[in-house]
Amino acid sequence: MKLFTVGPTEMYDEIKFIGGKQVPYFRTKEFSDVMLSIDCLLKKYLHTSRESKIIYLTASGTGAMEATVTNCLSNKDKILIINGGTFGERFKKICDLYSLNSTEIKLGTNEALTETHLARYDNCGFSVLLVNLHETSTGQLYDIKMISKFCKKNNMYLIVDAISTFLCDEYHMDENDIDVTIISSQKGLCVAPGMSMVAINSRILKERVMNNNVKSVYFDFNNYISNIERGQTPFTPAVGICMQIYQALKMIDKLGLEIYLERIEKKAIDFRARIGKLPLTIPKYPLSNAITPIIFKKPIAIDIFKSLKNEYDMIVNPTGGVNEDYILRIAHIGNNDFEDQKKLVECICKILVRYE
């Protein structure tokens, strides 16, 4: 079976080899050294200072989103949320659950985020902006420089879910004045699901995290910060996933980040060129290199998803909600090459003939 999904991805052989090995005991110097190496490499590729702290959670991305809200925000905040799809909506649900004061910029189908959307909230007393920089449910990649400029002008904290843009598109945490970055193991890192990481810069660390009295045993960031200094987590991590992350980061380091990202970009360009003559469209808003949403004229997306899976052993991302009958999402990350994409497009063509 071949995965063209954004997470889990089609994993590289080197990662699968690590996944097949005995999981080591973790309260050792050797495992601490692994975690400290991971910490160093993640900061390098996030383009953030060594003074930033990274929290290592054995949780899904949603767990990291909720933990970030509870550790970094308070009921005194006035929060602005970019809601362009499923994951923007999830930030809103988390804030509502904790009875936080939040307002959403809700984007319609095929609607791109613009300066006009943000300008309506200028000088309105907002203290925090939450955004899923690549809204995976739609494929839209928001303009981080535009968002950062708005936050800086309004003296707001900027909290970014970068789960499906980190190691897929260029990402510069410090350059864009991002206070918090949330990432997970199963997207750009191309390893198994199981770990999520939260990178926190020194400003929000000192002003919020260290002073928030979080009512949680497992999700208190201060506990994680003190433990990672010795290369450990306060509770048992997904040790095997940590070893896979270490292998993935070493592979990227050997290849070079620029080349790694360039390969993904070229695959995205190649796929979009190949589908150009098919009876479907792609959104006009800016897209991440991670995925391409393909939009069918007829409500056949679910049927095509099933045909690809059952007849050709190929798995793509379906789309939930109002678009489930019309949109599929094709990932360009993981161990797939141009020839794999060519075969996928050929299979889609064969299936489409049935609906002419």
Rank of each mutant, 00 (worst) to 15 (best):
D174Q: 04
L352P: 09
E339W: 02
L42I: 15
G188R: 00
T9C: 12
Y121H: 08
G256W: 00
P283D: 05
A199D: 02
A331D: 05
K92Y: 06
V191P: 09
K145F: 11
C349G: 08
H172F: 10
K215W: 10
F150M: 01
I294L: 04
D161R: 08
C40G: 12
E66M: 03
T236K: 14
T9Y: 05
F150D: 05
L257T: 04
T109L: 06
R208I: 06
L46C: 04
K93T: 08
M173W: 00
E115N: 15
C72R: 00
S196W: 03
C168W: 02
A192K: 15
L261P: 05
K76T: 07
F221L: 00
V239R: 03
E30K: 15
K153I: 08
A273I: 08
E175V: 08
I225W: 06
I245C: 14
V198E: 00
N201Q: 15
T319Y: 01
P24R: 06
S52Y: 03
T86R: 06
A238P: 01
G108I: 13
G231M: 03
R120Q: 10
K277M: 02
M1N: 02
P234W: 04
H134F: 10
F91H: 13
S137W: 01
K16T: 05
K306M: 13
D39C: 07
E170H: 00
R230L: 08
I147N: 11
Y326W: 07
G320F: 11
I348P: 13
L257N: 02
V131F: 04
E324M: 14
I333L: 14
C347H: 11
C95V: 09
G108S: 06
Y142W: 08
I94T: 11
N227P: 00
Q22M: 04
V128R: 05
E115W: 13
I295N: 14
L57F: 05
Y121R: 04
I304C: 03
D174M: 09
D96H: 10
N227V: 01
N289T: 03
L287R: 12
L261E: 04
V131H: 03
G63P: 07
S307G: 14
S307C: 10
K153Q: 13
L278I: 15
K306I: 01
G320K: 15
P234N: 13
E229N: 02
I54T: 06
Y171M: 01
E324R: 11
N310L: 06
I225Y: 09
A301P: 08
T103A: 03
E170I: 12
M210T: 12
E262W: 02
M195R: 13
